[in-house]
Design a binder for these strands. Structure first.
Length: 279
DNA sequence: AACAAGACCTGCATGC
DNA sequence: TGCATGCAGGTCTTGT
């Protein structure tokens, strides 16, 4: 589910039910996700109050009242669901949180590429999960000059480079495709050749796409994104992602025939683009 | 150091 | 109907 906008949406959706609340009960229904849960995680969380919920990279961060931070990644298929119907947990409901107000929140992740761990707030910058990460895509630090510096001399494709979280953080497969489309840059272009003027177009394109997606509550693929169960609707604004063979809509009457969205594979992932508009 | 490829895991759509 | 294949929002490790 999650690129930056979806994780941001999940964080915002959790604030209403979790901020200021204590965990009355935490149930781990297996011993690991992508990595093992830390020893004693449930006990460490029980009784703690959630002081702040925020996004860091594609992680959901919950700052607790004891100086620790609960770190959650949704992987490809993870969800946080606020339970409203007292249904019994399903096969992929791996962690169940109950607040002191009785609200139940389930972490559900069929593929288990997600993770959940705990770290001291003061050590986050040095933490294994974060220390190698580049600038956040929606932050002020991420600029054309910075992107240019990071891409300089890189021979890999710009599409693959955008997915490299050491270069920029938060962009995933969908928004990499959509950003390159908006900026008119071919995903096949060598990353090093984007450093400079093209980066001046690409950075604002990334920021705009992400901001619009956040405003739309993210993109919903096979399922809902928001903890409340509501759908994000940015998938309706996709110009190229998942639209192989369709017109990208950028054409005029003078456009050449080759104006349909193409799908290629880069770095083992699908890339969608318009060969006419993107050079 | 940079890069490509494989690994992790389940579910779903498609085609035979 | 069953079975095989390919594909899916992300990291992380291994090998060149």
């Amino acid at each position: 589910m999650p690129e930056l906008p979806e994780v941001e949406t999940v964080c915002r959706g959790l604030i209403g039910v979790l901020k200021g609340r204590r965990f009355a009960k935490v149930e781990l229904r297996r011993k690991d996700l992508r990595i093992p849960f830390p020893k004693g995680l449930a006990a460490a969380l029980t009784g703690r109050r959630v002081e702040r919920i925020y996004r860091r990279a594609k992680y959901i961060m919950m700052a607790l009242d004891d100086g620790q931070v609960l770190i959650i990644h949704l992987g490809m298929s993870g969800r946080m669901v606020i339970v409203k119907d007292a249904s019994s947990p399903g096969a992929h409901d791996h962690v169940i949180f109950t607040t002191d107000k009785g609200t139940e929140i389930r972490f559900n992740d069929p593929r288990r590429f997600g993770l959940m761990t705990l770290a001291a707030a003061a050590e986050l910058d040095q933490h294994k999960l974060f220390r190698h990460l580049g600038a956040d895509a929606v932050g002020d630090v991420f600029s054309p000059a910075m992107l240019s510096a990071a891409l300089k001399g890189r021979k890999t494709s710009i599409k693959v480079a955008l997915l490299d979280q050491r270069i920029v953080v938060g962009v995933g497969n969908i928004y990499a495709c959509e950003s390159l489309f908006r900026a008119g840059i071919s995903p096949k272009r060598k990353a090093g050749s984007v450093a400079g003027p093209r980066a001046e177009a690409l950075v604002p394109a990334i920021k705009q796409v992400l901001a619009e997606a956040i405003a739309a509550g993210g993109s919903s693929l096979r399922d809902h994104v928001q903890p409340s169960g509501e759908l994000g609707y940015f998938q309706n604004a996709w110009k190229v992602y998942g639209r192989e063979g369709e017109s990208c809509g950028c054409g005029s009457n003078k456009a050449p025939v080759d104006h349909k969205v193409k799908r290629i594979v880069q770095g083992g992932r699908s890339t969608f683009f318009c060969p006419y508009r993107q050079t």
